[in-house]
């Protein structure tokens, strides 16, 4: 069990149990991440040509490939993943922390943040991440946020309602016999921290920072929400 909420320095905890892991598994992780989830794909495909967006925690940039008629600035903490993401034209990718984004407020038509904020280890930091994303949006802007669900009893992991929401999830890095690691091993297990979201928790986080939920739902072991800057903008077209 991960006791993240009690960690004295959440940022140091995440550095060790999230950022360092992704930096080391970047290439292997990227080779397994090429399928776009349907909800994300349709959100991206419906964007107006020439709109400007963010992909916060873009990883290897697999969603940058979905729509070439918009311009996206992707960002990620892992420089090794950003190097891969930067190859997706016509977009751009930078190294940045999702809680400290280098963007002006109100400039962006859309944002996506897929499988990212469940790596933040306190409720305050998860809400702050939503707030930082919403601040970047124009008044009519929309953000799609996607997080891992606690309720996934038919998945390989088998978690369900009532289970611990803060967990460590192994990633087995396989190098093959031709490229063993320094100690001669051909595989190494890394542990990544995750906060598994309960039903309704993502929407509550959006509302807690003043944002409005336009639409939300469940897709294959994940909760998602399309949100906007303020409750009063949920009815605007977009």
């Amino acid at each position: 069990m991960a006791d993240a909420a009690a960690a004295p320095n959440a940022d140091q905890y995440e550095e060790q149990h999230v950022h360092e892991v992704y930096e080391q598994i970047a290439s292997h992780f990227s080779s397994t991440r090429y399928q776009a989830w349907p909800i994300v794909k349709s959100f991206m495909q419906e964007l107006e040509p020439g709109t400007i967006g963010l992909d916060v925690g873009c990883g290897n940039g697999k969603y940058l490939a979905v729509n070439k008629d918009v311009f996206i600035v992707g960002s990620d903490r892992s420089s090794n993943l950003v190097k891969i993401a930067a190859q997706h034209e016509p977009h751009s990718a930078i190294i940045a922390d999702s809680l400290v984004l280098p963007h002006q407020p109100g400039r962006f038509d859309f944002a996506i943040c897929i499988a990212v904020i469940h790596h933040l280890s306190t409720p305050q930091r998860r809400q702050e991440a939503v707030k930082v994303i919403l601040e970047c949006l124009r008044d009519d802007g929309r953000a799609l946020i996607y997080v891992w669900a606690l309720e996934q009893k038919n998945s390989r992991r088998g978690w369900d309602e009532g289970d611990d929401q803060d967990v460590m999830v192994p990633w087995v890095l396989k190098t093959g016999k031709k490229n063993p690691m320094e100690d001669g091993a051909t595989e190494k297990t890394f542990q990544r921290y995750y906060h598994l979201y309960r039903s309704g928790e993502l929407e509550a986080d959006v509302n807690a920072v003043g944002g409005g939920v336009v639409d939300s739902g469940y897709e294959k072991d994940n909760w998602w929400a399309i949100c906007c800057k303020s409750e009063s903008f949920t009815k605007a077209s977009g």
Partner: peptide, 17 residues
């Protein structure tokens, strides 16, 4: 300088932003 395929639809609509 990189070579990127021209996309007028993208360019025209980006300019107002």
């Amino acid at each position: 300088s990189d070579t990127i395929e021209p996309n007028p639809k993208l360019l025209y609509n980006i300019l107002p932003r």
